[in-house]
Amino acid sequence: MPPYRLQTLIEMRERAKEEAEQAFSAAVKALAKEKEELQRLEEELVTRKAMRKQKVQEYLQQVMAKGVTGIGGFNQMNRYEERLKDEEAQLALEVERQKDAVITAEKLVEQKRREMAEAAKELKAIEKHKENWKKQLKEERDKKEEMNQEEIGNTLFMMRQRK
Rank of each mutant, 00 (worst) to 15 (best):
Q54N: 05
Q54S: 10
K55P: 00
V56K: 03
V56D: 05
V56Q: 05
V56L: 04
V56Y: 03
E58C: 01
E58T: 11
E58D: 12
Y59M: 09
Y59V: 05
L60D: 03
L60W: 00
L60I: 00
L60S: 09
Q61A: 15
Q61V: 01
Q62D: 14
V63I: 13
V63F: 03
V63C: 03
V63T: 08
V63G: 03
A65N: 13
A65F: 00
A65S: 15
A65H: 04
A65L: 04
G67I: 03
G67Y: 12
V68S: 15
V68F: 15
T69E: 15
T69L: 14
T69V: 15
G70C: 11
G70D: 15
G70M: 12
I71H: 13
I71A: 07
I71F: 14
G72Y: 05
G72R: 09
G72N: 08
G73A: 15
F74R: 07
N75I: 11
N75A: 11
Q76Y: 13
M77D: 06
M77P: 02
M77V: 06
M77H: 03
N78F: 14
R79S: 09
R79D: 10
R79M: 07
R79K: 13
Y80W: 08
Y80P: 01
Y80K: 06
Y80S: 09
E81S: 08
E81W: 03
E81I: 00
E82P: 00
E82G: 07
R83F: 02
L84P: 01
L84G: 05
D86P: 00
D86V: 03
D86K: 11
D86R: 12
E87T: 02
E87W: 02
E88L: 02
A89L: 08
A89K: 12
Q90M: 04
Q90N: 07
L91N: 01
L91H: 01
L91Y: 00
A92D: 14
A92L: 09
A92W: 01
A92C: 03
L93D: 10
L93N: 12
E94G: 01
E94V: 00
V95M: 03
E96I: 02
